[in-house]
Structures are given as structure tokens and as C-alpha cells.
Amino acid sequence: MESLLSSLFSENEELYILDCMAYVMVFMAACTFVTLLFENVPYGRYASSRYGFPVNAKFAWFIQELPAILVPLCLLLWTSAAKTSLLPNQLLIAMYLCHYVQRSLIYPFLIRGGKPTPFISFALAFVFCIYNGYMQIRYLSHYAEYPADWVTHPCFITGSLLWLVGWLVNVHSDHILRNLRKPGETGYKIPTGGMFEYVSGANFFGEITEWAGFALAGHSVHSVAFSIFTTVVLASRAVAHHKWYLAKFEDYPKGRKALFPFLF
């Protein structure tokens, strides 16, 4: 793979391309933000046949997230990965992989039922995971340079703690959602416990916090672009969920916010 990448462009050219990929992601986040003002993300309860044929939820989650693991592993195992001997780079790569190992290899097999995913949503997620997986890990494994004491810098420490808190909130919130219904029960219920006591989109809040921490610790345009894109998409889902819950349940907690506790 190293020879293939070397034949395509020089190191300076590749770094420039990686930077451009980050700016394109920010631009796509802006376009997505405008689009989602008028349209819900087409998945789950908001899915529609106009977005393509339905794909089984477990299969969709497993396959669409898998490139986020496979692409980085190929880059780490089959390229020079010159910066992976550095501790800050190792820790940031570990944060990234920890999320996606859970998301692709564990989470899909814990889903109970689950609404099918429209093919277009599935395909876009698959492409995004390839794109982002290459951008994040190629930069961290081959180009990112941090000061020798970066792991003790307040930005890295704060970012790492935010990432950990966000990851735990995300995983715990998914656990609550999976266990809302007892065996044999159908229909929707109001989630309670954990961060759901404060926001309707607790799982989304956790993931947004996670990648905001990653961006702060990573201190690069690539990690910031990922955080911005994630925030745009998941904030839209949280707002849609919040509005749906308020319309669906008369007894829905009125003080509960959509995404950020006490604020929004």
C-alpha cells in the first residue's frame, strides 16, 4: 500500500490533499446543516422508501461502519506509519479505533429489532467511514507531529477526558435505549436514566462530546472537521427526536432539553 500511495503523490501533495479533505468535510457539514433544516435524516422512524430499499439494521450498522476499522488497519499495517511510535499519536489512534470497534463489531449485534436503514443512508455512511477513516488515521500515523510533552498539555488532558466521558455516555445511553422494552413488548417508550434525565438525545450528546474531545486533543483541522460534521448530523437527529417525543407523549418531561443539558 505504501508503494501505491507513493506512486499517486508525494508526501507534501498527500498532506495537502488531507487538508483539503478536511475543508471539504467542513463544507459538507454546512451543506448538510442547510439541508437538515428542511428534512430529517432518513433513518429509523424517519425512514422513507424514496431513499432506497430498506437494509436490515444489524447488517447496515455492521457493514457501513466496518471501513472505519479496516481502512485504518490497512494504513497502520501496510504503510510506513512513521508517527505511530509517538505516544500522542498512539493515544489518538486508540481513541478513534475504540469508538469504531464498539460501533461496528459490538453495537450491531446488540440491536434488538431496529428499523431498516434506507439504502441511500447506508451507502452514504459507508462512503463517509472510508473517507474519514483514511483522513484521520493517515494524518495521525504519517504526518501529525506534537510537542514531546503534548500528553501533559491541558488541551490533550481535557480533550482526552471529554472523549472518555462522551464515549461512556454514548455506550450507556445505547444500553438504556436497547432495554426500554421488555421481551414481547412493542411500541415506543420514554427513555429514562443517565443523561436521558436531561436531554432527549443522550446518545447523540455522548458522541458529540466524544469527538469534540478528540478534536481538542488532536489539535488538527482533520479532527475539528470530523467533530463539526458529527455535531451537525447528530444535533439534527436530537432535535427531531425531541420534537417527536413531545408530540407523541403528553407526559414527556417538559424540562428535558433536546441535546445540551439546561441549554438546548
Rank of each mutant, 00 (worst) to 15 (best):
Y245Q: 12
G159V: 08
E185D: 08
L15Y: 03
L124A: 06
A215I: 03
A30R: 15
E210D: 05
V101L: 14
I120S: 05
L37A: 10
Y16P: 00
L140C: 11
S6V: 10
N203C: 01
P54T: 10
S227G: 09
V171I: 02
N12A: 00
H142W: 15
I228Y: 12
Y43P: 00
T192A: 10
P42G: 00
C129I: 00
F262H: 09
Y46M: 05
L97G: 00
W167M: 01
E250M: 07
Y96I: 02
N132M: 06
G184P: 02
L37T: 13
N56H: 01
S10P: 02
P88H: 03
L73I: 11
M25S: 05
A81D: 03
F62V: 01
P108R: 01
G218D: 07
F205Q: 02
V224W: 06
A212Y: 15
S223G: 07
A144Y: 13
T231Q: 01
Y23T: 00
F109Q: 00
Q102T: 04
H219Q: 15
A202N: 10
M28A: 08
A94Q: 07
R138P: 07
E13L: 09
T158C: 12
C155K: 14
V221H: 11
A22W: 15
R50I: 06
A240R: 11
R178A: 04
V34T: 14
H242M: 13
K254C: 09
K243W: 11
S49H: 11
G206D: 08
V127R: 04
K83W: 14
G213M: 07
E39M: 08
E14M: 03
G201L: 02
V199E: 09
S236W: 15
Y134H: 03
Y107M: 05
R237G: 02
I190V: 12
P54C: 06
F196P: 00
K182S: 14
H175A: 06
Y139F: 06
P54L: 11
W167Y: 14
L37R: 15
V41W: 07
N170P: 04
E2G: 03
G187D: 10
L263V: 11
L77E: 08
H219D: 14
C31L: 05
A240K: 08
F38N: 06
P72R: 10
L234R: 03
I157F: 11
L164F: 10
P147S: 14
W61P: 00
V232G: 03
K58Q: 14
V171T: 11
V127D: 03
G159F: 14
E11I: 01
S6M: 10
H219A: 13
D174H: 13
I69H: 13
S141F: 14
T186V: 09
D149V: 06
P116G: 04
F264R: 05
